[in-house]
């Protein structure tokens, strides 16, 4: 109990502990920022294709809603013993294609032990389960952009670059427009 000034109201000790605490908080916020840079530096980049979100669905705030091709996958990709359940965390195996973007080839309930060369795993959650397929959520469905510039991006297919760090975090690092004819 000497570690914290548990119940000693001495102002000097309180001030000393507060100083350390505030320093730790600032450090933590800086670490979050550093993690942002580290993910794009050390992470592996995958490119994912999106399809336009329903154009009637107007811009919400200052972000673009992204609907990835890998957000809906056929049920046959499921590799779990049990039936897939809503909200369960999953590991999606991505394979690069000749067209320059990645597609999902398998969905695992736990991190797969071995992967073919070039394949990457992206973590996500099951959003919904249908007879034919699974709807997946990756936490990457929003891209924050300066205000009032998002609407145009939402109406066309995009190629989104995502960095996946070896320690599991991921972030969107870039967004580019795809020519309309390469879309489905």
């Amino acid at each position: 109990m000497v570690m914290l000034p548990l119940f000693s109201p001495v102002p000097e000790r309180r001030r000393r502990w507060l100083l350390r605490l505030v320093a730790a908080q600032v450090l933590f916020v800086l670490l979050v920022a550093a993690a942002g840079y580290a993910v794009s530096h050390y992470g592996r980049t995958v490119a994912l294709r999106t399809s336009p979100v329903d154009p009637r669905d107007l811009l919400r705030g200052d972000y673009v809603s992204l609907n990835y091709d890998i957000s809906q996958v056929p049920r046959r990709l499921w590799r779990g013993e049990e039936e897939p359940r809503r909200r369960r965390p999953v590991y999606v195996q991505l394979q690069p294609t000749a067209a320059g973007y990645h597609r999902a080839v398998a969905v695992y309930p736990a991190a797969p032990a071995a992967l073919p060369a070039g394949h990457v795993v992206l973590r996500g959650w099951i959003g919904n389960v249908w007879r034919q397929g699974l709807q997946l959520r990756y936490g990457l469905e929003r891209y924050y952009v300066p205000e009032n510039t998002g609407l145009g991006l939402q109406r066309q297919p995009l190629l989104v670059r995502i960095s996946i760090a070896p320690w599991g975090q991921s972030r969107i690092t870039g967004l580019e427009k795809l020519p309309a004819d390469t879309a489905r």
């Binding site: 309180r14 916020v29 920022a33 975090q169 972030r171």
Partner: peptide, 30 residues
Amino acid sequence: TSQLYQLVGYDVTGLLAWVVAGVALTYVYQ
């Protein structure tokens, strides 16, 4: 800050740090 870097985490580390800070401050300020 996570939003600033479009960072996605798969655990509650960030929120956990918040709880830790809250507990520590409770003791420091009584």
